[in-house]
């Protein structure tokens, strides 16, 4: 599959720029007016000839950021068959990467445009990178470059990057997760998570904090133990990104972190709401107690806000 994608990417890249696509209308004042009204932009050079001239323009100019508006497909618009972005989107739709999100848009304006100028646009495929594991799911970054011209003169360019990704199923069946055995020595911990607390075993005799807990203090031998409630903040001491095999109640891939709590003990937990690629040792995390059902509340972690 990956090979087929790479072949198609090379083919589209080699095909070069799409044919220039002219805007429906030339640059015009009514569309400029719609824009400045909707966005609330009060810059006078877009609507007032004298103000534009005072600012050094040859009369009214269009907002530079409108450049893409002039060549939008419109209400019933269709992509040209040689449009590289369209070709890429179809390729990834077919490959199961059905969702899309734009990530970057970089516009460069070579000059301001005046009403009456007719703009055309062509597109080239700049780059395709993937597959990447992202917070949204596995996907590919597709980067295209648009060039707008008036006649033969390039007047603006845009680098545009989208992520085409395979969305994860809505939510894993977390209730399938493996259950802890609860007994005399650890019930306080699981009762704590259910009560909204992260409890760490504490020795009332010598003060030692301990996790995982046990029935007898290894430091002083005391057999009566209580607990303190942790603040729920810590840092990643180590972590893994689990890809294989499937684990009950977990959505692949997922991150398990060994969290060092502010209180000094370490604890394992799934790190959620995070792009696995951004996890690192030392990362600050915060507790995210998650009720699985009436019998189990698990301590998950998420990046500290």
């Amino acid at each position: 599959m990956t090979e087929r994608i790479h072949d198609e990417v090379e083919r589209v890249k080699a095909a070069g720029a799409s044919a220039p696509k002219p805007g429906r209308d030339p640059v015009n004042q009514p569309m400029i007016n719609n824009w400045v009204e909707a966005l609330g932009d009060t810059n006078p050079i877009y609507v007032d000839d004298a103000a534009a001239r005072a600012a050094g323009h040859d009369g009214i100019v269009a907002p530079p950021a409108m450049i893409q508006v002039w060549t939008m497909g419109g209400l019933h618009g269709q992509r040209n068959t040689d449009d590289p972005l369209g070709l890429m989107l179809r390729l990834f739709d077919d490959a199961g990467y059905t969702s899309i999100v734009a990530t970057n848009c970089e516009q460069t304006y070579h000059r301001y445009l005046h009403p009456g100028e007719q703009v055309s646009m062509h597109t080239t495929l700049e780059d395709v990178v993937g597959p990447k594991q992202t917070g949204l799911g596995e996907g590919w970054f597709v980067t295209t470059r648009n060039v707008w011209t008036v006649g033969d003169e390039p007047v603006a360019e845009m680098l545009f990057r989208v992520l085409k990704f395979a969305p994860r199923p809505a939510s894993p069946d977390r209730s399938a997760v493996l259950r802890p055995i609860v007994g005399h020595d650890n019930a306080f911990f699981w009762e704590g998570t259910a009560a909204g607390e992260l409890r760490v075993q504490h020795c009332p005799t010598c003060g030692r904090l301990r996790h995982p807990p046990g029935p007898m203090c290894p430091s002083c031998g005391a057999d009566k133990q209580d607990w303190v409630v942790a603040a729920g903040r810590g840092t990643v001491f180590s972590y893994v990104v689990h890809h294989h095999p499937p684990v009950p109640g977990k959505q692949l891939p997922f991150v398990v972190a060994l969290v060092e709590l502010e209180e000094g003990v370490r604890m394992l937990g799934e790190l959620i709401d995070v792009d696995p690629a951004t996890v690192h040792v030392g990362m600050s995390v915060q507790l995210a107690l998650t009720k699985i059902d009436d019998e189990l509340t698990l301590p998950f972690w998420r990046p500290a806000s």
Partner: peptide, 21 residues
């Protein structure tokens, strides 16, 4: 993970968190 033994209790600090291979 579900053995009613000290090993099962130990496993309860990792398996439910997804660390189980």
């Amino acid at each position: 993970a579900s053995a009613p033994t000290s090993s099962g209790i130990d496993a309860g600090w990792s398996y439910p968190m997804g660390l189980g291979t």
